[in-house]
Design a protein around this nucleic acid. Structure first.
Length: 225
DNA sequence: CACCAGGCAAGTA
DNA sequence: TACTTGCATGGT
């Protein structure tokens, strides 16, 4: 089955089905305030800290960094590795994450002189490439930074997105991150607000229902083909 | 006790 | 290219 094609003759396209999923989730959850944070920088740091990690633990780490007044580029850049490790320890993987934060900060300093606003003003796909060039920032982390931090109109694909779309027969295993992202951004309202909510809905749904017994019981998507 | 959580890079074959 | 493994804390 071609990635751009219709599921069956006369049936809905993949894009149309995803629009209905979005509509259903929006009706179920309403307005979503996903990814809290007082600044773009806080969200970008959080995006690295939350890699394969429970959000509650990320909050503890961010509280520590805030308490020591290091939640801004210049201040965090001046910290020693051992200080950063100590502050972010609750978020787990604290040594690799310190290395990743340092790599991100290095890019921010070199390319933007530590000015987050300038970074956020960069054209979306130029900035995306720069983020992806940082060791420790992959596609999901980069897109989270772009969407929730920089306010760019881009959709974040995560494991829940894959699982849900796969379970609904909309995608298969061999679809790449970019394939799924192109699909999800292919129709309907294309705004950052929508993409922020939609990704939040997907994670909420995944956490709440994907592992439930009986399978998917009570999920707002359970009767969506 | 096992298993999971808002991933990614490096190593192996 | 396609797997596998290391990274680590805190909750259930």
């Amino acid at each position: 089955m071609e990635k751009g094609g219709r599921m069956s003759l006369g049936g809905e396209s993949r894009e149309e089905r995803i629009e209905r999923i979005y509509g259903r989730l929006k009706g179920y959850y309403g307005a979503m305030h996903w990814w809290p944070g007082d600044s773009a920088f806080e969200i970008m740091v959080g995006a690295i800290l939350t890699q394969n990690t429970n959000w509650r633990n990320v909050e503890r780490a961010l509280e520590n960094v805030k308490r020591e007044n290091c939640l801004e580029p210049a201040a965090l850049w001046k910290c020693s590795d051992s200080d950063i490790e100590r502050m972010i320890r609750p978020s787990g993987f604290y040594r690799v994450k310190t290395r990743r934060l340092r790599a991100f900060l290095g890019m921010l300093m070199r390319e933007y002189d530590g000015d987050v606003q300038r970074l956020c003003d960069t054209e979306t796909y130029i900035l995306r490439e720069r983020l992806l060039a940082v060791s420790g920032i992959g596609e999901e982390t980069a897109d989270s930074m772009l969407l929730y931090g920089a306010g760019k109109t881009i959709f974040v694909i995560d494991n829940y997105t894959r699982r849900i779309l796969k379970r609904h027969g909309i995608i298969k295993d061999d679809w790449s991150y970019g394939d799924i992202q192109t699909l999800c951004m292919g129709t309907g309202e294309q705004t950052a607000e929508k993409y922020r909510d939609f990704h939040g809905y997907i994670v909420m749904t995944g956490k709440e229902f994907c592992r439930k017994v009986p399978r998917c019981g009570g999920c707002p998507l359970e009767k969506i083909p």
